[in-house]
């Protein structure tokens, strides 16, 4: 087991050597992730784990991949996508263009979900989606658009529950164990690494989605990121969070109005 003191030591070295700052991540969750990786990779001692991270840049990449959580799915929380489909996106239809930022998009399942919604609403041609994550490896997976075929049953059910009426399999080509999604869906998507901890605002958006990312941050870091989103959101734009995340304790709360009981907030000031 890695103890709290070891963790502090390790995180400080990682910031200094590589510029990745995990010191404001939620401690309990981070500790679990670190111990999990320590066990999976069978390090005999903390000292060896520590040394490997400090001395092996390739291993650091694995470290980032395993410490950050990349569990995601298409049309996760179908009720949320239903509101996007029926209320939020149609209201943007009169805009000359729609700029969307998926912050912490991981392998991009939610980006594809969004692209499918936009296509069905005939808005994809005037939408520009930015997909960012701290981790370059997941972004590479995203751009390939290849997902396990075994997940398609669940995704198809989610899609239908979100109000989709097409045959979900029309969006991908099945091949052995994989599903290759139509590249046209993400043709105009821009992807880039972006670290919510240290990077700044880079554009102004009508819609920002950051779902189940902030749960891994402590309150202080959450506030930094909320400010970053606020700076990056046009007036009357929308911010979407995960099903158990909230603006209620945040510094920007007063400038936003929640959309009914959904995890969607509109910037009103």
């Amino acid at each position: 087991m890695i103890n709290d003191h070891d963790i502090e030591l390790l995180l400080n070295d990682i910031v200094e050597l590589y510029g990745y700052d995990f010191t404001f991540y939620s401690k309990a969750s981070l500790k679990r992730r670190l111990n999990r990786l320590f066990e999976i990779d069978k390090f005999p001692s903390f000292a060896e784990f520590h040394y490997r991270i400090k001395s092996d840049k390739d291993y650091l990449q694995r470290f980032i991949e395993e410490i950050t959580v990349n569990v995601t799915e298409m049309f996760r929380d179908p009720g949320f996508y239903k509101i996007l489909r029926t209320e939020i996106l149609p209201a943007m239809g009169t805009n000359p263009y729609i700029k969307i930022w998926h912050a912490g998009c991981s392998t991009g399942e939610e980006v594809f979900s969004m692209a499918i919604l936009l296509k069905e609403l005939n808005l994809l041609h005037k939408s520009l989606i930015y997909a960012t994550d701290i981790n370059p490896t997941v972004l590479e997976k995203f751009t390939k658009g290849i997902f396990p075929l075994s997940n398609m049953k669940q995704y198809s059910e989610n899609y239908i529950a979100s109000g989709g009426v097409k045959d979900f399999s029309s969006y991908y080509t099945a091949n052995y164990h994989t599903a290759l999604f139509d590249p046209a869906l993400i043709q105009k998507t821009v992807h880039s690494t972006h670290n919510l901890v240290s990077d700044g605002s880079f554009n102004e958006f009508n819609l920002i989605l950051c779902r189940n990312v902030l749960i891994y941050f402590d309150s202080q870091l959450q506030d930094r990121v909320f400010n970053l989103f606020d700076e990056s959101l046009a007036k009357l734009g929308y911010l979407c969070l995960g099903s158990k995340e909230s603006l209620k304790f945040s510094v920007i709360n007063l400038k936003y109005k929640q959309h009914a009981k959904e995890k969607i907030w509109r910037k009103i000031k």
Binding site: S26, A28, R32, I215, Y216, K244
Partner: peptide, 14 residues
């Protein structure tokens, strides 16, 4: 999860 600062944390990992 429970943080030593007296708040709950959620985690959507495996």
């Amino acid at each position: 999860l429970i943080e030593s600062t007296g708040v709950f944390s959620l985690d959507a990992s495996e």
